[in-house]
């Protein structure tokens, strides 16, 4: 009977103040959706990193007047360098062939190119892609080396964009969370006020504190969990209609978001939404319903 009472009271409480309840659920949903999005992005950043680092190579361009000894010395050094996973030599001819392919739709440019105008190079892949700076520092001073170019900057830019998007989502999540918390507190206060007679009788006859507070806290938790369900629906819709829709061609650039991760947000968001509501509700009642 007591469980039934508590559930019934929570349900009628949500209905009584339905406009505020809806406002609370919507802000909660937006906040949790942003939180979920930034969580997904966080999981994604690691994958994108892997993808890019697998392709990152350091190019050691050789000087025009490089001697055969210098070239061989560099070859030997790279061969025995533990930081290097594999590398290959690209001659001027090969560079020319590559450039012709790359710029095949700009015949004028290809016409102007001469094999001699392109530098020969070593293309180096690293065992640990994050060590590109070390490689630069080691080989830049060598005789016959003109320039060392790595793709760090390109990768860095992509990551700073991802980071910025993530920070933005977190900021929105935090602001909406603050609004959601205030709404939870307000909804609970209104509920407690509208049931003040019941509450005063319950306290007078000695109902335990948890019994007095539980319907209100449960009310907040139910709203929080509904908010989490909506947030999950929004994320799933985003995945289905946007990431797998118009953004699908970008999966070369950004690794696809797996359904498994999206599904993972459901229990996580429900737990966060429920817990945050419960704690807010409980703290509000501590101030509102003195023993």
């Amino acid at each position: 009977m007591r469980a039934k009472y508590v559930l019934y009271e929570a349900a009628t409480g949500l209905w009584r103040n339905v406009t505020m309840t809806v406002a609370m659920i919507i802000t909660m949903a937006v906040s949790l959706a942003m939180l979920g999005a930034s969580g997904l992005l966080f999981l994604q950043v690691d994958k994108v990193k892997e993808l890019y680092y697998a392709q990152v190579e350091v190019t050691i361009f050789l000087a025009e007047d490089v001697s055969d000894e210098d070239r061989e010395a560099l070859d030997r050094a790279l061969d025995s360098d533990p930081l290097v996973s594999h590398y290959y030599y690209e001659s001027q001819e090969e560079a020319y062939e590559k450039a012709r392919e790359l710029f095949s739709d700009a015949p004028d440019l290809v016409e102007a190119l001469r094999p001699e105008s392109l530098p020969e190079s070593f293309r180096v892949q690293l065992t640990d892609p994050e060590q590109f700076r070390e490689i630069s520092v080691t080989y830049i001073g060598w005789d016959g080396v003109s320039e060392i170019v790595d793709q760090e900057r390109l990768v860095g830019d992509i990551f700073s964009i991802l980071n910025a998007v993530q920070v933005m989502a977190l900021v929105i999540a935090a602001v909406m969370a603050a609004a959601a918390l205030l709404l939870v507190a307000n909804v609970i206060q209104v509920a407690a006020y509208s049931k003040r007679r019941e509450v005063s009788v319950m306290k007078m006859v000695g109902a335990s504190n948890w019994f007095v507070q539980l319907p209100f806290v449960l009310e907040a938790v139910v709203a929080g969990v509904i908010g989490a369900l909506l947030a999950f629906a929004a994320l799933a819709a985003g995945k289905y209609f946007i990431i797998d829709g118009p953004l699908a061609p970008l999966s070369m650039l950004l690794t696809p978001v797996p359904w498994r991760n999206v599904l993972l947000t459901l229990p996580a968001l429900a737990a966060v939404g429920g817990l945050v509501s419960a704690v807010t509700g409980w703290v509000t009642l501590r101030f509102y319903l003195k023993p």
């Binding site: 009977m1 007591r2 009472y5 007679r197 019941e198 005063s200 009788v201 319950m202 306290k203 007078m204 006859v205 000695g206 109902a207 335990s208 019994f211 007095v212």
Partner: peptide, 30 residues
């Protein structure tokens, strides 16, 4: 408080419950 009964000037009954339900409420919530 369960060992104390209280009566006030303003009765403090729940208006949406019958006489029976008002008394039963005090039992049920404890």
């Amino acid at each position: 408080r369960r060992s104390i009964g209280c009566v006030f000037q303003d009765f403090r009954l729940l208006p949406n419950r019958t006489a029976y339900e008002n008394v039963a409420f005090a039992l049920e919530v404890i």
